[in-house]
């Protein structure tokens, strides 16, 4: 039987090959056939999760509730020292210095990355802004969010912190960060679906040992990860509860 592995669509395009290499490594470690299915957007991925097509996922924290509470996934591991944090940035020359300087009608560029969008919307609340009185500028990725700011089609943009920091130096010089989240406890998670759940501890052991050899460390580096830490049920439930308070 071939299992299906997928990755939250918010990963940077440069990491695609890294996930294929990781999948090959995982198949060898588990001696199992695993197909890597990548999606361009969260809607199609969630449809396949709902249809029971996914067995293993590197999931966005926003989807943790759906996966654990509705689809019977079990948490396996989380990326070490890697929390999801959001940044709101404006064009460098913008008169906006603080979130409170943004006004109703502001055009906000963002991707469909749900946890970053949630954190971004929370950070504009102090300006009495919400989805109801701002204009959303939908972008396919964070480079396009930056372009929307530089072209003047958006007044502010939501970025995943890591993606903001990975923008080119030239682009970043033309942008200015006005606020950054420091939430610490929101992070991606690798989770096993019902068909792979019986092998949860085996997958955990493989992941936790990845940084013990040079090949494993190379694969991790290609994913932008330092290693994996075990993620238990209670820590996942806590994150789900926390995300629930934010939405």
């Amino acid at each position: 039987m071939t299992h299906t592995f997928t990755v939250s669509p918010d990963f940077p395009p440069a990491r695609i090959s890294g996930w294929f290499i990781f999948n090959t490594w995982l198949q060898r470690r588990l001696e199992a056939a695993i197909h890597l299915e990548l999606y361009d957007d969260f809607v199609r991925q969630r449809a396949d999760i709902a249809a029971g097509k996914i067995d293993l996922i590197y999931a966005n924290p926003y989807d943790a509730a759906l996966l654990v509470r509705e689809k019977g996934f079990v948490p396996v591991a989380r990326p070490r020292d890697k929390a999801d944090e959001a940044i709101i940035a404006v064009p460098a020359a913008s008169a906006v210095q603080h979130v409170e300087d943004l006004r109703p009608g502001a055009r906000i560029a963002s991707t469909d990355d749900p946890d970053v969008r949630t954190m971004g919307m929370i950070m504009i609340e102090p300006a009495d802004l919400s989805a109801a009185n701002t204009a959303a500028v939908a972008c396919g990725n964070y480079v396009l969010v930056a372009k929307a700011l530089l072209s003047g089609t958006a007044d502010a943009g939501f970025f995943l912190k890591q993606s903001f920091e990975e923008l080119s130096e030239v682009t970043r010089r033309q942008l200015r960060q006005i606020v950054e989240s420091h939430i610490y406890v929101v992070h991606h998670a690798l989770m096993a679906g019902p068909r792979l759940a019986p092998r949860r501890d085996e997958i955990r052991d493989a992941l936790l040992g990845m940084d013990q050899d040079a090949k494993g460390r190379d694969i991790l580096a290609n994913l932008g990860l330092a290693g994996w830490d075990e993620l238990d049920e209670e820590a996942t439930e806590f994150m789900i509860d926390l995300m629930d308070t934010l939405t």
Binding site: E125, P126, F238, L242, T245, L246
Partner: peptide, 12 residues
């Protein structure tokens, strides 16, 4: 229970 507190607007 979990309680999460965030920054309120000055208007509120």
């Amino acid at each position: 229970y979990t309680s999460v507190r965030r920054k309120p607007s000055r208007t509120k």
